[in-house]
Nucleic acid binder design. Structure first.
Lengths: 342, 342
DNA sequence: TTGTAGGCGTTATCAT
DNA sequence: ATGATAACGCCTACAA
C-alpha cells in the first residue's frame, strides 16, 4: 500500500503534525526535523492523499465542467482556455458531457455539489427549466458560458451576440446584399440565438430591408442539416445572394451544398459564419466570420470561480448575476464579396 | 452547511449506521426505519459526501485522462467514447491537457495517483522517456491510446497502423500512382508513425517503387505546416500525383496549398488522409481516408480500466502489456482518383 | 518548535 | 434489525 503521513512520521522520528507542517510549508519547523522528514518522504515516495485532504479541508480544488459534447472545436476552444487557466491556478477539471440532456445536466450538477467542487462552468445549447432551477439552487458557484442570463441568477461570460450579428449583417448589406438568408437554430429559445436574430433583424430594418421568411432556415448546429436545408433552397430556385450562418459548421454545410450544385463562392453567393473555429480558416473558401475569443472565455470563467472561492467564506454563493462580455471581431476571408446580381 | 449523515440520523431518530444502510441499499433495514430515513433525507436534501466516501472506501470512481489538447476532433472523438462509457459505468472523468509537455504528463500522472484514481488513459503525440518511466512505475492502471507498446509495460488500444497505411498506399498504387508523397511527423520516434511509415514503405517495395526522399515531408500534425510544405513542393516544380497524409488535418493543408495554386483534386493530384475526423467528410473535396473507430477506442479503454479495477485486489497492477487492436476501414470519397499522368 | 488529540463524513465490524 | 465505534489520511487548535 501507499505510504501515509504516519509512515513518514515513524520513519523520520517526529510526529505526524510536524510532517504535516513541512508538507504544507506552514508554521515553522526546525531545519533538522524538516530535513529528516523530507528525506523520509523521498525514501517512501510519499504523496499526500488528496481525498483525505479535501475531506478535512472542507474544500476542493476541482472545477466541474459540463459540455454538450467533445470533439467540437467550439467547446474545445473554450475548454482549452479553462484547462490552461485552472492548471495554472492549481485546479483540476472534472469533465462531463451532457449530450444536451437536461436531466444529465442536473445529475452532474448534483454530483459536483456532492464533491464540493470549487465551482462549475456549464455550457449548453439550450437551457431547459430543470437545469435553470437546479443552477439557481446550487451551493457552489456556477458560471454559464456563452449565454446571457435571462431570469437566471448566475454569472455569465460571452460576447455581445446582438452586436456581433448586427455588425456581420451590416457588412453583408454594405457589400450590396439584400437577399440574405439566415441559418439559425430552433433551440434558441431563451438562448443567445435570439440575440443574434435581433441583431440580424435590426440591421435589416435599418436599411429598410424586409425579412424574407422563406430564407430563414434552421440548421441546428449541424453541417448535415444545413446542407439539406440549403439544398432545399437551391431546388426551389430560391437561392439568396448571401447566407449568414450562426455557426461555422452550419456555414460549411451551406457552402458544401452550394459547391456541390455548381455555385461559386463568393462570386455567386457569399457565405459568412460565426465563432471562427479553426475549421473556418482551413475550409476553402476560407470563411468570413465573427471571431469569438473562445480561449479567453474559458480563462475568464475559471478566474471568476477561483475569485469567488477565495473572496467569500464557505457556503456563500455570490451569484450576483454579473456578466462578462468579451470583445468579438469581424474577420473577412474568402467566402464573401460584393453582390453582383441586381 | 450541507446536511450530513448525522443530521439525517438525528432527525429520523435512528443511528448513522442505519442511515448508511438505507443509502447503500445494503443489508436489511426495517420498512419503518427506512421510511423515516428516506423522509429525513428528503427534507434535509441530504447528499452523501463523495469525498468522505472515497476516503473510507479506499477507492475512487474517477478516471484520469491526459490529452495533448482539446478542440481537436481526433482526441475529441476518443474522449466522447471515454465519456460515454464511463458515464454509463458510473465513473467520472478528470481531464488534463499536457500540451505535449512530458513534465506535465508526469505531474498529472502523479496527481492521479494521489487521488487514487481508478485508472488513467493517456494520449500523447510523442512518448518521452520521463513519461515512459513514470507509467511503468504507476500504482494504478494506465492505458496508452493509439500507440503500440514498445518497451512499455502498459496496455494499449489502437488500430493496426502498419496494415492501414499499407492498404491505403496500395489503394493509391492500384489507381496508377507511383509518385506518391508522404506527409508525416518528425515526432514519430517510438510512436505509431513508424508503423505507418513501414506500411507505406512495404506497399511501395512490393510494387518495386523506390521511395523518393524528396517527397517525404514533415507536416507535424499541422494544417499550416503541411500547407507550407506542399507549397514548397509546388514551388520546386516537384508536385507528385498523389499525397498520403498521416492525419486529416495535414491532408487539408496539402489540399489547400494545391487548390490555392490552381491544382484540381483529384484530377491533377489525389490526396488521402488518415483518421477520418468529421472534417474529412465536410471538407471539399471530401477526403478519402483510413477510418479509425475513435469512439470505440475510448470506450474500450474505459472498459479495460474498470475490469482491471474489479478483477484484481487493491494495489495490484495488471499491466500485462495486453493490446487491443480495433479494426479500421478505407473510405473512398472525392479527393482521390485514377492517376492521369504517365 | 513539537506532540497530542479531536474532528471531517462515511463505511463496516462488532456486539446487542 | 440496529447501534456503538473503529478506521480512512490528513489538518489544526491546544498543550507542552
Amino acid at each position: 500500500m501507499k505510504a501515509t503521513i504516519k509512515d513518514v512520521a515513524d520513519r523520520s522520528g517526529v510526529s505526524i503534525a510536524t510532517v504535516s507542517r513541512v508538507i504544507n510549508g506552514a508554521s515553522v519547523v526546525s531545519e533538522k526535523s524538516r530535513n529528516k522528514v523530507l528525506k523520509a518522504i523521498e525514501e517512501l515516495d510519499f504523496k499526500p492523499n488528496q481525498t483525505a485532504r479535501n475531506l478535512v479541508m472542507q474544500k476542493n480544488t476541482t472545477i466541474g465542467i459540463i459540455v454538450p459534447a467533445l470533439g467540437n472545436q467550439f467547446y474545445g476552444g473554450i475548454l482549452n482556455g479553462i484547462e490552461d487557466a485552472s492548471s495554472e491556478l492549481g485546479y483540476d477539471i472534472l469533465l462531463c458531457t451532457s449530450g444536451g440532456d437536461s436531466e444529465k445536466e442536473v445529475r452532474y450538477l448534483e454530483g459536483f455539489e456532492e464533491r464540493h467542487c470549487a465551482g462549475v462552468v456549464i455550457m449548453t445549447r439550450k437551457l431547459e427549466a430543470g437545469t435553470v432551477q437546479k443552477i439557481n439552487s446550487m451551493e457552489i458557484p456556477v458560471i454559464l458560458m456563452n449565454r446571457n442570463t435571462s431570469g437566471l441568477k448566475c454569472p455569465t461570460v460571452s460576447i455581445d451576440n446582438f452586436r456581433a450579428a448586427y455588425e456581420l449583417t451590416n457588412y453583408l448589406i454594405k457589400k450590396g446584399h439584400t437577399r440574405i438568408a439566415l441559418f439559425r437554430n430552433s433551440v434558441d429559445i431563451d438562448a443567445f440565438g435570439v440575440e443574434q436574430y435581433s441583431g440580424f433583424e435590426r440591421a435589416l430594418a435599418e436599411h429598410d430591408i424586409a425579412i424574407d421568411r422563406s430564407l430563414v432556415k434552421y440548421g441546428e448546429f449541424s453541417t448535415q442539416r444545413s446542407y439539406e436545408q440549403m439544398k432545399g433552397l437551391i431546388d426551389e430556385g430560391n437561392v439568396p445572394t448571401a447566407v449568414f450562418a450562426t455557426s461555422d459548421v452550419m456555414a460549411v454545410g451551406v457552402c458544401n451544398a452550394l459547391l456541390d450544385s455548381g455555385y461559386r463562392i463568393p462570386e455567386d453567393v457569399s457565405v459568412v459564419g460565426f465563432n471562427d473555429i479553426e475549421l473556418a480558416e482551413n475550409y476553402r473558401p476560407a470563411l468570413t466570420v465573427i471571431h469569438q475569443p473562445l480561449k479567453s472565455m474559458g480563462d475568464e470563467a475559471v478566474h471568476m470561480i477561483v475569485s469567488m472561492n477565495n473572496g467569500e467564506g464557505r457556503g456563500i454563493i455570490p451569484n450576483d448575476g454579473r456578466t462578462v462580455i468579451l470583445s468579438h471581431e469581424l474577420i473577412e476571408r474568402q467566402s464573401s464579396g460584393k453582390c453582383k446580381k441586381v
